[in-house]
Amino acid sequence: MSDSSEKISANKVVSFHYTLFNSANEQLETTRDGEPTLFLVGADNVLPSVEQAMMGKAVGDSFTINLAAVMAYGLRDENKKDRISAKYLKHEGKLKPGQIVRIDTEQGRRTATVIKVGKFSVDIDLNHPLAGQDIRFDVEIMAVRDGTQDEIAHGHAHGVGGHHH
């Protein structure tokens, strides 16, 4: 499945473990206690700056990617707030400020943070929860292989750690 001499390049499927830290060196998330993440190079499945840092790497490579906020999830935009009908978030259960929710927008599915919950409406912040933060990824490349025709056509990796249809 994986050729250890293969380097990461366009249309390769990369399997990798990562640990994400904020600028205070607090661990925010990790894949190391489960399956590695899969992504198809060139399909906008990961942050462009992360994908760029992986180019040319191979199985077994471990490295750190330090990203300023602008290269990670962007700067905070105080105008990215909205009030939506609470009925759109009924599936999220009892809402509370600070809760992360997913909403469908004209730009596709987005992550938002609940600011305030009213009887009929919810104020949300549409900035990514990590917007405005410098972050660090500690990455280890586990496998690299050619993407299949299906994966390339669908624009994402299939299988464990990737997308399932």
Rank of each mutant, 00 (worst) to 15 (best):
T30F: 08
L130R: 10
S23L: 05
T64E: 13
K57I: 01
R136M: 10
D150C: 00
K80E: 12
A157N: 03
H156W: 02
Y18S: 12
L89P: 00
V117S: 10
L28I: 11
G132T: 05
V59M: 07
V117E: 00
H154N: 10
D61L: 05
F137A: 04
D123F: 10
G155T: 06
H164D: 14
A53N: 06
G159N: 10
T105E: 11
F39A: 03
A24E: 15
I65K: 12
L89N: 00
E51F: 01
K12F: 01
K94Q: 12
D123G: 04
N127C: 03
M1A: 11
M1V: 08
S2E: 09
L130M: 12
A68E: 13
H165Y: 06
H165N: 04
A53Q: 01
N127H: 06
I103R: 09
V139Y: 02
K119P: 00
A10W: 02
H165A: 12
Q99M: 14
L20S: 06
G108V: 01
K116L: 10
I65P: 03
E51G: 09
A69W: 02
T105R: 03
K90D: 00
L38I: 03
L89V: 06
I135H: 09
H164G: 08
A58Y: 04
H158S: 00
M54T: 09
N25G: 13
L126Q: 04
P129N: 12
A86N: 07
R83E: 15
E35Q: 13
K87M: 10
L95R: 06
K90M: 09
V139W: 02
E26Q: 13
I115H: 08
A72P: 01
R32M: 06
M71N: 09
I65L: 13
S49H: 07
E26K: 12
F16C: 04
Q52M: 10
I103A: 11
T31E: 06
A24Q: 14
R76W: 05
E35F: 04
I115N: 13
D138K: 12
A143Y: 04
G56W: 12
I115Y: 02
I124T: 02
R83T: 15
